[in-house]
Design a protein around this nucleic acid. Structure first.
Length: 360
DNA sequence: TTGAATT
């Protein structure tokens, strides 16, 4: 897990005592500039294939957005896996952190936190560390580096097959570049207490700095995905098995094969109407909200929109909602896995939305 | 044995 060590104290200080909070608008400081320290969020660890539209849809479900941006590579246009959301209301920013931080989307667990004020001093503050003792934990590593400054994130890479054994390699991101520089001076080539070998500490490569070959491969794969039609059944079966084996915290109740799902195609479906495939979710609790739908469907692929249908007067969920997913195979897998899924004391009914159900 | 954290 990533760790963030940013004291709220600093956020308070940067806001300053002179800021004026308007009832329905941004906080304006006395020098006239907009203070977005309580409304502007950074979102990390987004799935690679998440689009700007999906990003906006997810965070727009919390409250009114002043602006948002999924950060992309300037050359390839590929998502860099993080973005920014600036809300109109600081309360919505707080709510977004409380409800969306830790949300699982496909293979990622997103992180939602306040963005630090942008400045050159916080850039290029990420370190690559190798030669770490295999017994050193993330916490140990942070303890070693924390004497040089405030740590924003840290990670120790682990072996995939042995599930959790340290590879002796990690990353430390400091708040400030000069802190990272001091850590290199102080720790590169040094032996941690009790370690047999010295560690190597240097600035990390920028992950976007790929070889020409890797870049071409990435471009090719992006183009191939864009022009690929519906997958064959065998492929879908393979991907369904992968999904189910990956657990995602989802337990299946009544198994439905992809083949039985695809037999429905073109019969009753609302279809891939521009926006994607609309899914009907029935038997939600009165307390259900949008976040539960993101949590349930997000792991299966690109979700563009979710909606909980509420009673106009009580504002309680009327027991059903809708989810829109971009790709048919991902929608089919979500349905196959979540139809019959037990959520609390309820068993969900999940299907493609049909024109008949829409009349309700 | 290198992960998408400052628009």
């Amino acid at each position: 897990m990533v760790t963030q060590i940013i004291s709220t104290m600093e956020t308070q200080v940067s806001n300053g005592p002179s800021g004026t909070s308007l009832p329905n608008g941004p906080v304006i400081s006395t020098n006239g500039s907009t203070d977005d320290s309580k409304t502007n969020l950074i979102v990390n660890y987004l799935p690679q294939n998440m689009t700007q539209e999906e990003f906006k849809s997810l965070f727009g479900s919390i409250g009114e957005i002043e602006s948002c941006k999924l950060v992309r590579d300037k050359i390839t246009g590929q998502s860099l896996g993080y973005g920014f959301v600036n809300y109109v209301d600081p309360n919505d920013a707080d709510k977004a952190i409380n409800t969306l931080n830790g949300l699982k989307l496909q293979t990622k667990t997103i992180k939602v936190s306040y963005a630090r004020p942008s400045s050159a001093s916080i850039r290029d503050a990420n370190l690559y560390v190798s030669g770490l003792p295999k017994t050193m934990s993330q916490k140990d590593m942070e303890q070693l580096f924390s004497q040089y400054g405030r740590i924003i994130t840290s990670r120790i890479l682990v072996d995939q097959v042995t599930a959790g054994i340290s590879r002796g390699v990690g990353f430390i991101r400091f708040d400030k570049r000069n802190e990272a520089e001091e850590a290199i001076k102080g720790l590169n080539g040094q032996k941690p207490l009790g370690a047999a070998e010295p560690i190597t500490v240097k600035f990390a490569n920028n992950p976007s700095q790929k070889t020409g070959q890797a870049l071409l491969t990435q471009l090719y794969q992006t183009a191939a995905r864009r022009y690929t039609g519906p997958l064959h059944h065998q492929t879908q079966r393979f991907r369904l098995d992968n999904l189910l084996n990956a657990s995602y915290g989802v337990k299946r109740f009544s198994p439905i094969t992809i083949d039985s799902m695809t037999s429905l195609a073109g019969v009753n479906l609302t279809g891939p109407t521009g926006a994607g495939w609309c899914i009907f979710v029935y038997n939600l609790s009165p307390e259900a909200d949008e976040s539960v739908l993101w949590q349930l469907f997000g792991p299966f692929g690109a979700v563009t929109n979710v909606k909980v249908i509420r009673d106009f007067t009580t504002n309680k969920c009327k027991g059903f909602g809708f989810v829109t997913m971009t790709n048919y195979d991902e929608a089919a897998m979500a349905i196959a896995s979540l139809n019959g899924y037990r959520l609390g004391d309820r068993v969900l009914q999940v299907s493609f939305k049909t024109s008949k159900q829409h009349k309700a």
